[in-house]
Write a protein that binds this DNA or RNA. Structure first.
Length: 480
DNA sequence: ATGTGC
């Protein structure tokens, strides 16, 4: 019998795979899905989540978000918490793109100013913001500068003139994670990262000019300083080749560590090391270094885009009204305290394609949003919607304070390209303005290749994980 | 995701 048949719906939107369904599975797996999303759930994604539940020190349960799909070892959309003393850390369960994440910037512009000139504006952004696989930026860094980026994160970018000090108060972990140690990062990673800071990359990464097109919670929207018709900038990118190389390097370390620490795993892609071992600490230090590089990357990308828009309209910074709403990581492992059965435990929370969604009054939520809950930014696919939610209390009980991260792929890249060949790109994109250096990535990233992001956010809202605040619609998209 | 793939 397949694993999917063994899932039990325990309440609306909640499916449970009981512990011991697969051999050695120490904890249950919960899938958060609507009926429609359940239909697209892949057998292999269930298997991957169940496999993770066999790893040493896994606590309470594995949680899987509604935008789940198969990943490397651990599914995208998966949340796994391991004990910081007895548990492991798994590079594959963070993902290749360490601190892939999202940034939202508000402006004073309104849609009626931007809409008529959106094509020209997007072409300006295309000229000024490097995007695409293997793209390089204007910034060339020496190894010691790279080490500084790895420690300071977004602050480094601000010090170089890419943004403002108050930006740092609106970034997850202040835009710099504390446990970074640049000496744990390989020479190859430094070489790959040296000319990629301030570049978008490819795949589902983008820079988008958006407009607030629907408000679900007027009060919270107002307190965030956002209203209908307001133009925003969204950045979706990560740590580029730097983080990729860190992942590659430490997957090798993890494979060796399996023998050394006698860890038995069902899938080599879940190779891991004890968190408290020298190998585990080294990966954590390198991972945080890559995460800080990604914070700096989005800081630069957001600023370059805003500056392009500012110049395009001939505005001062004050008149543009640049204001960072929030910036977050959705591919990361974080050291956090969580309450399980009344006991507070120190855990390594792996979020792979999953967004932290801490509730109101959590001390890790920046003071500006302390009473509202952490902003949760959910980018859609090209051309459909993106969403802003805020974290809610229930997330701490049913997902280690975590929500979904995006739409989730439906069509393979190959299938998407076939679809475009059959239908023609112009017809597929319709009225959307998408600019890119090459057409290849756009074909792979068409809206039809993704699940409906509205359906995904409806699930986390219904479960009380995060509350829907507003929807953003693209006016123009820059792709890799 | 990725100096894109075996």
């Amino acid at each position: 019998m397949g694993l999917k048949e063994q899932l039990v719906q325990v309440q609306p939107f909640v499916y449970k795979l009981p512990e011991n369904t697969v051999q050695g599975q120490k904890a249950p797996v919960y899938f958060y899905l609507s009926d429609r999303l359940f239909e697209t759930l892949e057998e292999d994604a269930i298997k991957q989540a169940a496999n993770a539940a066999t790893l040493p020190g896994v606590k309470k349960a594995i949680y899987v978000m509604p935008d789940v799909h198969v990943g490397y070892g651990f599914p995208v959309g998966g949340v796994m918490a391991t004990d910081a003393e007895e548990g492991i850390i798994s590079p594959g369960s963070v993902g290749y793109d360490i601190n892939c994440g999202v940034r939202l910037i508000a402006t004073n512009l309104t849609a009626d100013m931007v809409y008529p000139v959106r094509r020209e504006l997007m072409n300006e952004i295309l000229k000024n913001v490097p995007a695409g696989a293997g793209s390089t930026g204007k910034i060339k860094l020496t190894k010691s500068q790279m080490e500084e980026v790895a420690v300071k994160g977004a602050r480094w970018a601000v010090e170089q003139g890419f943004g403002f000090l108050e930006d740092l108060e609106h970034i997850e972990s202040g835009g710099a994670l504390p446990n970074a140690d640049p000496s744990k990062v390989s020479k190859e990673a430094y070489e790959r990262g040296s000319d990629e800071l301030g570049t978008v990359g490819s795949g589902n990464h983008f820079v988008e000019v958006q407009v607030v097109d629907e408000v679900y919670d007027e009060d919270i929207a107002e307190r965030l300083g956002l209203k209908l018709g307001q133009v925003c900038i969204m950045v979706h990118s990560g740590s580029r080749g730097f983080g990729h190389q860190v992942c590659v390097d430490y997957l090798k370390v993890a494979k060796d560590a399996l023998k050394k620490y006698k860890i038995d795993i069902p899938d080599m892609q879940l190779a891991c090391m004890p968190f408290s071992s020298p190998e585990g600490r080294a990966y954590f230090s390198a991972m945080n270094s890559a995460a800080n590089y990604a914070f700096a990357n989005r800081q630069i990308l957001g600023f370059l885009t805003a500056d392009t828009i500012r110049r395009f309209f001939g505005l001062s910074w004050k008149d543009l009204g640049y204001r960072l709403i929030y910036d977050l990581a959705h591919n990361i492992a974080k050291l956090e305290k969580h309450k399980i059965d009344g006991k507070v435990l120190k855990l390594v929370v792996h979020r792979k394609g999953a967004t932290r969604a801490f509730p109101p009054f959590n001390p890790e939520v920046p003071p500006a949003y302390r009473e509202l809950g952490q902003p949760v930014l959910i980018p859609g696919d090209v051309g459909r919607y993106s969403f802003l939610l805020v974290g809610q209390d229930r997330s701490m009980e049913i997902s280690f304070g975590t929500a979904c991260h995006g739409a989730g792929r439906l069509m393979s890249r190959t299938k998407a390209k076939e679809f475009v060949r059959r239908e023609g790109l112009e017809k597929v994109l319709g009225d959307l303005v998408v600019v890119a250096r090459g057409k290849g990535t756009v074909a792979e990233e068409i809206p039809q290749a993704y699940k409906d992001v509205s359906e995904v956010v409806r699930v986390v809202d219904s479960l009380g994980i995060a509350k829907l605040v507003l929807r953003l619609k693209p006016l123009g998209t820059l792709k890799g």
